[in-house]
Computed example of a mutant assay.
Amino acid sequence: MITDTDALSLLDITTQVCPITFVRAKLAVEKLKSGETLEIRLNSGEPLRNVPRSLAEHGYTVVMCGPERRDQPEGVHRIRVIK
């Protein structure tokens, strides 16, 4: 379970569907200064497969953090993106 964060901001895209999940994430990362971190809450499945991969393809560093709740691995996950 993720409880603490050193991310400067948090983006929750759990109510969004692909491809909007990536669009929202990319726009949020673009607002960061170089070296800043964004934490993103996203659903498992397609968003968890596509958003980290697409952000990495655009040159951002993606750190996989994992599910918010260990007892719900198919639930909401968090990743951190460093610009």
Rank of each mutant, 00 (worst) to 15 (best):
45 G>S: 09
4 D>Y: 07
47 P>H: 07
83 K>Q: 13
82 I>C: 15
27 L>M: 05
33 K>V: 09
17 V>L: 06
82 I>S: 10
38 L>T: 10
27 L>F: 02
2 I>D: 00
23 V>Q: 11
43 N>P: 01
16 Q>A: 11
66 G>I: 10
33 K>M: 09
10 L>F: 05
77 H>N: 13
71 D>N: 15
67 P>N: 12
23 V>D: 05
80 R>I: 06
75 G>W: 10
82 I>V: 15
38 L>H: 08
79 I>L: 09
35 G>I: 14
32 L>H: 01
54 S>K: 13
51 V>L: 02
17 V>R: 09
58 H>I: 02
17 V>E: 03
44 S>M: 08
61 T>E: 14
65 C>F: 07
22 F>R: 04
11 L>S: 00
82 I>L: 15
13 I>S: 01
58 H>P: 00
74 E>P: 02
1 M>T: 06
63 V>S: 13
41 R>M: 12
40 I>Q: 01
15 T>Q: 09
44 S>Y: 14
3 T>P: 00
67 P>H: 07
45 G>M: 09
30 E>K: 13
4 D>C: 03
23 V>N: 02
70 R>D: 12
74 E>I: 12
13 I>M: 00
9 S>H: 02
39 E>L: 14
52 P>N: 08
41 R>C: 03
37 T>S: 09
34 S>Y: 10
